[in-house]
C-alpha cells in the first residue's frame, strides 16, 4: 500500500523568496500528521503544492501513489482542502454552497440529496443551513468549511492552520472532530504553529523551519530524542533578579542538573533541564531549603515540542514568531503567490 501522502525533496520559490527549500514527508493512511513551524516556515507553500494550487520547482509529490503534478485531477478527487482563511460566498446559504461543492466534485444528485442533510446534521448546522453565510459567526463558518471539505469523502483531508482565530470551544470541537475522522479512517494533515494543537492531535509530526524539515517522528520520539526532564520552579511569585541568579548558580552545581535558565518573561521563574530520575524534584527542593530559599511553585514535566524546536534551532517558537513579525511583507508574499505557475 503506497503512503497516503509522499513528498520528496520539495522545493518552491516565489520570486527571490525560497519558501520551501527541502521538504520530504511520508504520511501513512489513517494517521493524523502535524506540520509544525513558525509563521513563514513554508507550511502553507508545502500545502499549496500538495493541493495542486502551486507547481513545485522540483521534487515529487504523490497521493496514494499518484503524482499530483502529472495527474492532478486524480489527486484532487482524493483530497479535501480546508484553507486557513475561510472563503465563503456571503450571498449564498450554507445548503446552496454544499450543493455547489457536491456538483463541482460530480457527486450524483441522488447521492447529494441524502448526503448534504447528513453533513448539516454532522456539523450541527441545522439552524443555519438556510441562512446566508454572510450572517455566520467565525465558528459557524469554520464548521461549514469542514462540511464542504468533507462532502466528497476525501481520503486525505488537508487543513491549513485549522484553529487560528477560533474561540476555545470551537477549537476543541474541531480537535474532537479530527480525531473522530481519523477513527473513521481518514488521513489528516494539519499545519499549525500551535504546539499544543500538534502535540494533542498528531500521531506524527514534522517540524519545519525556514523551508526545511528539522525534525520528524512521533511527538514522544522527538521528546525522547532530546532527552532530559524539565523542572519549572518559582521561588516567589515574582522573584527578584539577584535571588534568581544566586539560585541559578546554586542549582547548576547539582550533579543531575544539565542547565538552568532564568525566564524573565515569567517573573524570573527558573527552568531546569535535569536527567530523568525519580527524586529530582525532592533534591531541588531540599537544596533550596538548605540555601534558605522558599518554593512558591515547582513542577516537573517531560520536554515539550517547543523544547524540540528550541534544541534544533536555538530559539523558541515564540521567539521565531516575534522575529518574523515585521520582517515579513504579507502583502508582497500574497502578490508573489498570486502570480502563480
Amino acid at each position: 500500500m503506497p503512503p497516503a501522502v509522499l513528498i520528496e525533496k520539495l522545493k518552491k520559490s516565489y520570486g527571490s523568496v525560497e519558501a520551501v527549500k527541502d521538504v520530504s514527508l511520508t504520511i501513512q493512511p489513517g494517521e493524523i500528521f502535524g506540520l509544525l513551524g513558525p509563521n513563514g516556515a513554508g507550511k502553507t507553500t508545502t500545502i499549496r503544492c500538495l493541493c495542486t494550487l502551486a507547481s513545485p520547482d522540483s521534487g515529487n509529490i504523490e497521493i496514494n501513489g499518484t503524482s499530483v503534478v502529472d495527474d492532478p485531477k486524480v489527486a484532487r478527487q482524493s483530497l479535501g482542502y480546508i484553507a486557513q482563511e475561510v472563503a465563503l460566498d456571503p450571498v449564498l446559504t450554507g445548503r446552496e454552497l454544499l450543493q455547489l461543492q457536491a456538483d463541482i466534485y460530480h457527486i450524483p444528485r441522488k447521492v447529494s440529496r441524502d448526503r448534504i442533510p447528513q453533513m448539516i446534521d454532522l456539523l450541527e448546522l441545522t439552524d443555519w443551513a438556510d441562512k446566508k453565510t454572510g450572517t455566520y459567526s467565525g465558528g459557524l463558518k469554520k464548521r461549514l468549511d469542514l462540511a464542504l471539505g468533507l462532502l466528497h469523502q476525501p481520503e486525505v483531508l488537508v487543513l491549513d492552520e485549522p484553529t487560528v482565530g477560533l474561540d476555545i470551544e470551537t477549537r476543541s470541537a474541531v480537535w474532537q472532530f479530527l480525531r473522530q475522522l481519523k477513527a473513521a479512517g481518514t488521513t489528516v494533515l494539519i499545519t499549525s504553529h500551535y504546539l499544543e494543537e500538534v502535540d494533542a492531535l498528531a500521531d506524527r509530526v514534522a517540524i519545519i523551519d525556514n523551508g526545511v524539515v528539522i525534525a520528524a517522528g512521533t511527538p514522544n520520539e522527538l521528546k525522547d530524542r532530546i532527552g532530559g526532564d524539565r523542572i519549572t520552579l518559582r521561588i516567589r511569585e515574582f522573584t527578584p533578579d539577584d535571588e534568581a541568579r544566586s539560585a541559578q548558580e546554586m542549582l547548576a552545581r547539582l550533579p543531575f542538573v544539565q542547565e538552568v535558565i532564568i525566564n524573565s518573561a515569567q517573573g524570573n521563574s527558573l527552568n531546569l533541564v535535569v536527567e530523568p530520575q525519580s527524586d529530582a524534584l525532592l533534591s531541588v527542593q531540599q537544596s533550596l531549603k538548605e540555601a534558605g530559599l522558599s518554593t512558591f511553585g515547582i513542577s516537573q514535566s517531560r520536554p515539550s515540542l517547543d523544547d524540540v524546536y528550541l534544541a534544533a534551532t536555538g530559539r523558541t517558537l515564540m521567539d521565531a514568531e516575534l522575529a518574523a513579525v515585521g520582517t515579513r511583507n504579507l502583502k508582497k508574499e500574497r502578490k508573489e503567490a498570486m502570480k502563480g505557475t
Binding site: 494550487l53 472563503a87 461543492q101 463541482i104 464542504l148
Partner: peptide, 9 residues
Amino acid sequence: FLNRFLVAP
C-alpha cells in the same frame, strides 16, 4: 473562493 474550484477535480 476560487481555490474551491481550483482544488476540485
